[in-house]
Design a protein around this nucleic acid. Structure first.
Length: 579
RNA sequence: GGAGGCGUGGUGUAGACGGCCUAACACGCAUGCCUGUCACGCAUGAGAUCACGGGUUCGAAUCCCGUCGCCUCCGCCA
């Protein structure tokens, strides 16, 4: 072994001991007559002093450069009085070496490991192994490890069984675009990389596994975002003989444990909203509770009092700004922002020292007072009103609420979890001109009898639920359909032909005929959770080797072209601009 | 597919009003000096087709057009 101690184990406790350490040269401070080396390993730094009396060592130390890999043995000694560095965990001591071995030399790195300077992200990704040496990035992976460890511990403790499911699966309709893998053995056929282990885990329930979890890599061939990578990791869970309440409770307990164990944070119980409530109050199905109070629905007042302009709208939703006394200029900016978000306009009112100011005088004294009262406007408060059809108005008001909170620096910090339940079962796809599943086609409807399903499918709610943290969707799940006849009915509503159902889902319906227990599950986007816990702005900060916004891995230079023989083996011929 | 931002030595930035740019500053790098530093200090030096291509102009890092790359957002993401 090259090492007996890590840097963070070198401290005043072991003064006088001989130790061996190994790591990278972080910095060298050469005073001519004496050389200081900061040796770095993943735990931190330790200072090494090389004195000219040890001539060989001194000459070697003279040759060292940043990022050289070294191993050295020496004596831990107390630093001279006044020379303590309180910034370092090992700052009370230093190592006086008696041997020093250069294990590897290093080119000057393309960017500094030690200075913490912001570096172009493409360069960081190309030299990811160097970026990962930098403390801020490495810390994210320590956190990630603690989180994953805690998750596994929770599931193991609660009798869940970790099962791996195939990465080479079949393409299924619905959902995101699949990554396809051509089969050599079956020319002309393709596997699909899983968008989730959904069907497999349901089959495991049929198999009687009862409680399953997996930390699973999943793949979606869609455009990337700061919080979306083409491959990412899910904590995938499924439980048999449970209802929605059981899943929510168990998963909430899991998240509470993770925050406690990985970060020492005690979370409050998670509030819950139905999907309808979330939309009505926050204009979003993933409300950010950090962004101040809910929207105010003043439609009833506007309509019953037949207020000018607003009274004829289906929905009038208000964003309340407390104690900001916004200036005319700021209000004009908000009007512009609202229009950018898709509002026809924005009505504002501010309660100043001498009454209510507004950009819609037609409301009159009494109209203004009514609205101001509904929003409980005190002096300095402002109310921003968006009006129009319900869906659009709520969406715009919801975004305006977030934009305003950010603009005025009123985003609270904290961990504001929220369960959103009772999602719609279906939605109408304008694109495809057909009904699609809001969650996925295996979701149990919230209905009293199955006659309802075909009557007005778009009005139905489902036993589906999301976990939201600070406005970010963290997990999504549902109670599943476990009866083949019910499942068939849902497929029919989705417009699948019976032959198509047999071909694409026959195996699943078949399985359900052999005794399928009622079951429910959920999947967490674990990268997103860790991103939020780490305070990072992008998933790339918590994934070791991520891809750029255009799906490129600049380190390996993937994806790449392949040679003709590979294509021939697969029975593929390229067509189009790639050639 | 669409919109916006950015691209200047190895790194981070300044320069953007066209001529003061023969491109500046900090860090890094090289060489030398220095026995208590910890972002060591001091001195000297090397290092840039100003992303690429075209245009306007007597003259372009700077203005215009196009291309490429990175980032953000919309679409897309059951």
């Amino acid at each position: 072994m090259h090492r007996t101690h890590y840097a963070d184990q070198i401290d005043a406790q072991i003064i006088g001991q001989s130790v061996k350490i190994a790591g990278w040269v972080h910095r060298r401070r050469d005073h001519g007559g004496i050389i200081f080396l900061d040796i770095r390993d993943r735990t931190g730094l330790v200072q090494v002093v090389v004195e000219p009396s040890t001539k060989d060592l001194f000459e070697q130390a003279d040759h060292l450069r940043p990022e050289y890999v070294v191993a050295l043995a020496g004596l831990v000694q107390k630093r001279p009085p006044g020379m303590v560095n309180p910034e370092l965990r090992s700052g009370e001591v230093e190592i006086l070496p008696n041997s020093l071995e250069i294990l590897a030399e290093a080119k000057v790195p393309p960017f500094s490991v030690s200075d913490g300077e912001t570096v172009d992200e493409l360069l960081r990704m190309k030299y990811r192994y160097i970026d990962l040496r930098r403390q801020p990035l490495f810390k994210n992976f320590e956190l990630r490890d603690r989180v994953i460890w805690s998750i596994r511990e929770y599931f193991h403790k609660h009798h869940f069984i970790d099962v791996e499911t195939p990465q080479l699966a079949r393409s299924t309709p619905e959902g995101a675009r699949d990554f396809l893998v051509p089969s050599r053995v079956q020319p002309g056929s393709f596997y699909a990389l899983p968008q989730s282990p959904q069907i497999f885990k349901q089959l495991l329930m049929v198999a009687g596994f009862d409680r399953y979890y997996q930390i699973a890599k999943v793949f979606r061939d869609e455009d990337l975002r700061a919080d979306r990578q083409p491959e990412f990791t899910q904590v995938d869970v499924e439980m048999a003989f449970v209802d929605q309440e059981d899943v929510l409770r168990s998963m909430e307990a899991m998240v509470v444990q993770v925050f406690h164990e990985a970060m020492g944070i005690a979370l409050a119980p998670f509030p819950r909203l139905t999907w309808d409530q979330a939309l009505e109050r926050y204009g979003s199905d993933k409300p950010d509770l950090c962004a101040g109070e809910p929207l105010v629905n003043v439609s009833p007042i506007a309509q019953s009092k037949k207020l000018p302009v607003l009274g004829s709208s289906e929905m009038v939703a208000g964003v309340v700004l407390r104690r900001l006394s916004p200036s005319r200029k700021v209000l004009d900016e908000l009007v512009a922002e609202a229009k950018e978000l898709g509002a026809g306009g924005l009505v504002w009112m501010v309660r100043g020292q001498d009454g209510l100011r507004t950009n819609l005088k037609a409301l009159g004294e009494s109209g203004l007072e009514l609205l101001a009262k509904a929003a409980a406007l005190a002096q300095g408060d402002a109310l921003l009103l968006v009006a129009g059809d319900k869906a659009r108005t709520l969406a715009v008001a919801g975004q305006l609420r977030l934009a305003a909170a950010r603009k005025f620096g009123q985003m609270e910090s904290g961990w504001r979890f929220l369960w959103v339940t009772d999602f719609p079962l279906f939605e109408w796809s304008e694109d495809e001109q057909r009904i699609t599943s809001a969650h996925h086609p295996f979701t149990m409807p919230k209905i009293d009898n199955w006659q309802q399903l075909a009557e007005d499918p778009l009005s139905l709610r489902s036993q589906a639920y999301d976990l939201v943290l600070n406005g970010v969707e963290l997990a999504s799940g549902s109670v599943r359909i476990h009866r083949p006849d019910w499942q068939r009915q849902v497929f029919m509503v989705l417009g699948l032909e019976p032959s198509e159902i047999e071909q694409k889902f026959g195996f699943m319906l078949d399985a359900f005929q052999y005794g399928a227990p009622p079951h429910a599950g959920i999947a967490f986007g674990i990268d997103r959770l860790i991103m939020l816990m780490a305070g990072a702005k992008s998933l790339r900060e918590v994934i070791a080797f991520p891809k750029t916004a255009r799906g490129i891995d600049p380190l390996m230079d993937a994806p790449s072209q392949v040679d003709a023989k590979q294509l021939r083996d697969l029975g593929l011929r390229l067509d189009g601009p790639a050639l």
